[in-house]
């Protein structure tokens, strides 16, 4: 039995009368990289947002390191500190500099000293190639730069797992590469990650497992090779055909 970081059990979610997730089960093992693909409206982003309860499922259980996030007695804030998240639209704090974006949470939540937090932040900002911009206002950065800072910000909390919600969808094409490289490096270092993406080549390269979602359920999952080249399900095939045509 491998060591599961996350266990998702039968989660359901609806917005009004629209059913977005209907009974999703998924386990994420330590050091595993899982990408979630699927057409828009398939529920993949909602599923990811449920993993740290930014969206709250209507039903089901999500166990993070054994603790049920859906249990109302669980200290959500405490658990979220260990779950890093990177958003499609970056969501850097606009009233903070690059460095402050990275040191705020470690100082306030992990009670690190300013020196410790700065050291960690500089370490990660260097890793994502943003060490020369630390005192900049985040609004002056390009999309790719913002996303790399956002990744560093999440890493500064020393998370057990990282969630990526379409990290390159809001980027200009020439900036996609720099962000994907950073994520690939993380994968190589053994970070556990769940990534929602439209970048199939990237998914193939980086994933241990690909999850194909359709109409609120996991239609098929397996190794990149099986899902992208020998899919069994008709809807997976149809999705890949549409993707390759476009």
């Amino acid at each position: 039995m491998p060591n599961h970081i996350l266990e998702i059990r039968n989660i359901h979610k609806r917005f009004g009368d629209q059913i977005v997730l209907s009974g999703v089960n998924l386990d994420i093992s330590e050091k595993e990289v899982v990408t979630i693909i699927g057409s828009s409206g398939s529920g993949k982003t909602t599923l990811l947002r449920c993993l740290n309860l930014l969206s709250e499922p209507d039903d089901g259980h999500i166990y993070f390191m054994g603790a049920d996030l859906m249990d109302t007695k669980t200290n959500l804030e405490e658990l979220r500190m260990h779950i890093g998240m990177v958003f499609q639209s970056f969501n850097l704090f606009n009233n903070k500099t690059v460095l402050q974006n990275c040191t705020l949470a470690p100082m306030k939540l992990l009670k690190k000293t300013k020196e410790e937090a700065t050291e960690t932040a500089l370490n990660y900002l260097t890793k994502v190639g943003m060490q020369d911009f630390i005192h900049q206002n985040v609004n002056k950065l390009s999309g790719g730069q913002k996303q790399r800072v956002a990744i560093a910000r999440a890493l500064c909390m020393n998370p057990t797992i990282m969630l990526f919600d379409e990290p390159t969808s809001a980027l200009d094409p020439e900036m996609v590469g720099e962000v994907l490289t950073v994520i690939k490096n993380l994968a190589n270092e053994g970070m556990t990650m769940v990534i929602v993406t439209h970048e199939m080549a990237f998914a193939e390269e980086v994933s241990d497992r690909i999850v194909f979602m359709d109409q609120g359920v996991i239609a098929e999952m397996g190794t990149p090779k099986t899902i992208l080249h020998q899919p069994k399900e008709e809807r997976t095939k149809a999705f890949l055909r549409r993707y390759r045509q476009s």
Binding site: N52, L54, E77, E78, L79, R80, M81, I83, G84, M85, F87, N91, L92, F93, L104, A105, K108, L109, A150, R153, A154, M157
Partner: peptide, 9 residues
């Protein structure tokens, strides 16, 4: 959302 995801109340 970003603040909540980091663990802020």
């Amino acid at each position: 959302e970003a603040a909540r995801s980091l663990g802020f109340s």
